[in-house]
Write a protein that binds this DNA or RNA. Structure first.
Lengths: 117, 117
DNA sequence: CGGTAATGATACGGGTCCGTAACGATCGGG
DNA sequence: CCCGATCGTTACGGACCCGTATCATTACCG
């Protein structure tokens, strides 16, 4: 069954979740970083810099820098692929999984509230 | 009726819309700018710098700068309040309304696709 | 081996945003 | 009328991010 949502509901949901993100101030992730983080945690591994760059339609340095900053936040980790040492495998972390889960809960909760149209 | 959505669906929706925003590259709005824009277009006018700052829990310069950049994109306009010339009233624009509508359509469309869980 | 291709990281110049602090303009009460 | 309070803006120093171009490392193939 399709997930039905009207435009006005979509906008209120989008606004409310963004308000939560801004107010908590914890994430500080740009749209690109958010897309990268969720791709890592939703799509099947392994993830590489090149693969992420292709999926997002951005250049490789964008991915490298995003991984740098998200790594500093403990949201992801990098490791050399021993079978092909040119590759770098991006790995998930507990902190990253928790952050993703928190985001999901926020969206779910705000969607529930919006039901009272 | 409440808007029911499961955490895994919420995450896929969040990711997919962010992917769209990144790939189109047209918006380039930060989380704060998005929250400001949607507040202006969803909440009842009049909107002031101070009011927006209070709602978002940020400082006034953040609002001023966001209005500068969004104004440059044609998404909002400012005008002096003639009854109290200290105030500045933030006004909507056609381009801004279209951008908000486009975002809503994107969310609605991606939500519909996610139904096939 | 040697040379080419591919991967991820880095250097650089430019732009944007942040928070604090200060500023000019305007209102309003004593 | 003047002085404090309020409003939005600007200045400043620092941090982050972007895209292009380049680099070092590693793999592969003749």
């Amino acid at each position: 069954m399709p997930l039905e949502i009207r435009p006005s509901q979509a906008l209120r949901l989008w606004r409310q979740v963004h308000l939560d993100l801004v107010r908590d101030g914890e994430s500080d992730l740009s749209a690109r970083q958010t897309a990268i983080l969720l791709t890592i945690y939703l799509e099947l591994p392994p993830h590489t810099v090149r693969g992420l760059a292709a999926q997002l339609g951005v250049t490789k340095p964008v991915i490298t820098r995003a991984l740098d900053s998200m790594g500093k936040l403990g949201l992801v980790t990098r490791r050399r692929d021993e079978t092909d040492r040119r590759n770098v495998v991006i790995q998930r972390t507990v902190a990253g999984a928790l952050a993703v889960e928190r985001l999901a809960d926020c969206v779910v909760e705000r969607a529930r509230e919006i039901g009272a149209t």
